[in-house]
Amino acid sequence: MITLTVNNVRHTLDIDPSTPLLYVLRNQLQLNGAKYGCGLGQCGACTVLLDNQPVFSCLIPAVACGERPVRTVEGLGSAAHPGPLQRAFINQQAAQCGYCIAGMIMRAQSLLERVKTPSDEQIREHLQPNLCRCGTHMRIVAAIREVAGAGGLEAAVGAGAHS
């Protein structure tokens, strides 16, 4: 049995210790935002936050998370009440097929939590590990820029309430 804290909820799970975190999130916890892309840490579709740092959830065994909390795209908001970055992705229509988007959002979230108003250059460099086969990169950058332009995540929450 292992314990895992995901989006502020503590779970006790009976799994093989080497099961990748991604499988546990999707199969045991039904959190299907993070996607299986390459399984090699080369595409970023499985990106989640571990202790507020972006990691490839396909490459970390669930048991290795230990006491470090996990956050997934489901933790940022819901369809009815999207978080500020999720709302910006919707505003900019940043998804084409959408497969990479949960990973893109989580990696961008970690940047915006660390740097309130990142430059375009910082955004591009930070998102480099995440790939998008549809080519919506410009809209993804625009969505992150929207939050940065509104003064960061906290300011964007306020702005979103009025829109």
Binding site: T19, P20, L40, P61
Partner: peptide, 18 residues
Amino acid sequence: ATLFNAACASCHSVAAPM
């Protein structure tokens, strides 16, 4: 070994295509 199997083996195991 647990960590290797989850994090490394997909590229570095003897049978991995990579």
